[in-house]
Amino acid sequence: MEKRVVFRNKVLPYLLVAPQILVTLVFFIWPAAQALVQSFLQEDAFGTSSAFVWFDNFVEIFTSEEYLGSFRVTLVFSFAVAAIALSVALLLAVMADRALRGATAYKTLIIWPYAVAPVVAGVLWFFLFNPTVGMVAFFLKKFGVEWNHTLNGGQAMTLVVVAAAWREISYNFLFFLAGLQAIPGSFIEAAAIDGAGPWRRFWSIAFPLLSPTAFFLIVVNIVYAFFDTFGVIHAITRGGPNYATNILVYKVFNDGFINLDLGGSAAQSVVLMAVVIALTVVQFRFIERKVHY
């Protein structure tokens, strides 16, 4: 039975939820509504005049080669980040789960990167790979790899993917480790007696039991890569070179605040909102229900 608190005073409950509603209104609903309105307007760069243009902004972005390119870049970026962050985290979690000595120190160290702000992480990787002063770039050069992510789009993409994934590994690691530790040891022992080697035990027993965790993390990671990686991009590549790392969130910022195309930028935000909503629906409707064993 659900326990309900009944207030006698009719005003008090509204007062109690008011701060939360206010925060949501001011920081979420209002800007979102504003973006929605803005996406139907065209404004001059100085903000002195605006005109209602129906879906012109949307038509424009979806026919713009640059925008579609950015969409492709975002997809490549997001799936690469999710794939790397998930697979590395899973590998580390499996090792942490088997480690007997030093496990606590190992776990603590792996969790640290999550405490680093995305921009700081970006700067860190920027300096490591900086073509002139970066340590990693220096050693790469010694091994005959000419590293210059400011010129080479592929290298730039690799770098932002690594930087963005690095932080997310910690988060995924925690979930995977918790998931692995929740699997009763007797399942694995029973499989061992049934004749399965360590590799087979993992893929046929542990991994299927981890699948709810894995699906949850896939969605969370894609959302992260789509929306939370602005800082990484801004600190390392600023979307360059030649738009090679110009992901959608970065393009929204760039078009709106640098190029002052407010209507187009707002239309892009609305598209991103739709993507978030779609991912959330997928998360709740399909994954949370269907992944049952």
């Binding site: 007797s186 399942f187 007696i193 039991l209």
Partner: peptide
């Protein structure tokens, strides 16, 4: 070449 029945049965749930 042994087989074991566990206290919690350890049936693979999936």
């Amino acid at each position: 070449d042994i087989a074991m029945v566990f206290q919690n049965y350890a049936l693979y749930p999936h």
